[in-house]
Design a protein around this nucleic acid. Structure first.
Lengths: 303, 303
DNA sequence: AAGGCTTACGTGGGACGTAAAGATA
DNA sequence: TATCTTTACGTCCCACGTAAGCCTT
């Protein structure tokens, strides 16, 4: 069997160019590498080097072998990472999401530490979710699609409803619920980290302008001292930390239509389902208590 | 560094269930495997086994590690195969094709053995061509599309023209070239191994029936003692072995339109281009001498 | 008992380093 | 002469086998 230290020597040689540098780089002596490469050629039954008395050169087969060896070593590295991540997830589940809402609910449960977990605040690109779960970099992800498959399983947690916060003097504020069409052409202040919601508003609202803010504080400033509309959801609205100073010149309105809703799923590796089920059940209970329509008061002056 | 023999022991244990059987299967003693698995756990820093005094059981992490280890070993196996295939291709290029025509031209060059090669008669599925070349199971493939990319390079060899052989009493035989529409509704005898041509005739001729023959001899029988039309090309028509007994009740006709032509490319790994260029040039020369229209005589009686 | 895993101990192969030689440029 | 590779030789490590012990079923 060809052992990996030989592959590592070959890969290093390809980068370094000489056996001497290779040896130095691997902190061994030159004869060690000489013998290693001889052994590798022997093991493969393939001539990997053109030998000039003073210089060693990779043959075409040697170049290929070095590339392949690098791939083999990467695969082994991946194995180590996956296994180590897996056990780390058993000790403290790392939880991610493609939209921020579910993480807010999760934090509200933190007082009852039913579960040892940590939260990865950076939102995940939806297409990377399977990879993150497979590699156990994340142990649980809140997604907006059902990713159930041979390795993963998704279960619905609840529905998140999009609200828009409008200046109370705007004519659109004069209805309990607005449609995306009513919002066409407006300029909105939005947070950067809203994940999939960005796609929703970007696609559904025509001719709109979005002023992105990556800081929550800056966002609060602007909403307080301007009349630009902004978005919330039934989840963020229920978040106590989200309205440190309520912008009382605005009214919160539902947005009509199925496109203004996202079904949130809890997605985990099948393997982990029993491990996380208690937490999932707590989340479902908490989610069920959320309102589905704006609760904050504020009536339109025109009404 | 974790060496592969440890991974092999783990994989074997997952299959065998006990260290004893594992040891027997690997032709080593039991303590060797015990120590190996301890070393692997140590190297990964992960507990892979639940230890009962009399029984060893994989933990969830152990199951995952075993699966991953199998993948690592497969990757290494792939490396070995690729490298060994590569050198084999340098000694004797194995040549494949997605349509049989170019192989006929190739064989006609065999008298002038400019090149040490062998031919793989089984046609390749077009979508498998990149894989076959990357793995060096084939060193050169005749394709009908340009697969030029970072690793592969295609160069056009020539165009193969489809002919149809019609009973001379058929009205369609009364023109020097027919269209696919003229052939609608007919029943044809066709060889199985015609690769991409099958897609062409299947798509372009409406309501046609195809009687597939996997044997060249059976095909010849049928064409001789029946009047079913069949197909040839400017390449097969030039093949001396293809008309052992010319079916003289038929006339060979061109088919009109670009769909009745296939551009044939020679596709190789970039790396191999200089190696094969002399052969490719010979093939191009030979191809250029082919007719583009039917040469065999035979006039329609109605003419 | 019987079966299976682990520990203890001694050994041998092989991977390593040191030293020296060979071959360019 | 300087640089790089290879061969030769001695050493030490470590993977292995043998033997014994331990715990279940």
């Amino acid at each position: 069997m060809i052992e990996n230290y030989l592959l590592e020597e070959l890969v290093t040689f390809q980068r370094m160019g000489t056996l001497k540098k290779t040896a130095a780089h691997l902190a061994v002596t030159q004869p060690t590498v000489t013998r290693g490469m001889q052994k590798l050629e022997d093991g493969l039954g393939v001539k990997l080097f053109d030998r000039h008395p003073n210089r060693l050169e990779l043959t075409a087969a040697g170049e290929l072998a070095a590339k392949e060896a690098a791939a083999v070593l990467r695969r082994q590295e991946l194995m180590v990472n996956r296994v180590q991540n897996f056990v780390a997830q058993n000790q403290a589940l790392t939880i991610g999401a493609v939209v921020p809402g579910p993480l807010i609910i999760l934090k509200r449960l933190a007082g009852a530490p039913l579960f040892n977990h940590q939260v990865d605040e950076r939102l995940v690109e939806p297409e990377r979710v399977p990879e993150e779960l497979t590699d156990d970099r994340l142990g649980m992800v809140f997604t907006t699609t059902d990713l159930t498959g041979p390795d993963l399983i998704s279960q619905p947690l609840g529905v998140e409803h999009l609200f828009v916060n409008l200046d109370r003097f705007l004519p659109q504020a004069n209805q309990t619920a607005v449609s995306f069409k009513d919002l066409a052409g407006l300029s909105f202040v939005v947070l950067d980290d809203i994940g999939a919601w960005k796609d929703v508003i970007g696609k559904e609202i025509e001719d709109a302008h979005f002023m992105c803010q990556d800081e929550r504080d800056a966002m609060d400033e602007i909403t307080r001292y301007s009349s630009f509309p902004h978005f919330t959801t039934n989840v963020t609205a229920a978040d106590p930390s989200y309205h440190p100073v309520p912008a009382n010149n605005r009214v919160e309105r539902s947005i009509k239509g199925p496109k203004a809703e996202l079904t949130i799923y809890v997605t985990v590796k099948r393997q982990r389902q029993t491990q996380v089920q208690p937490l999932v059940d707590r989340l479902k209970t908490a989610w069920a208590k959320l309102p589905t329509t704006p609760t904050t008061g504020g009536t339109n002056v025109l009404k």
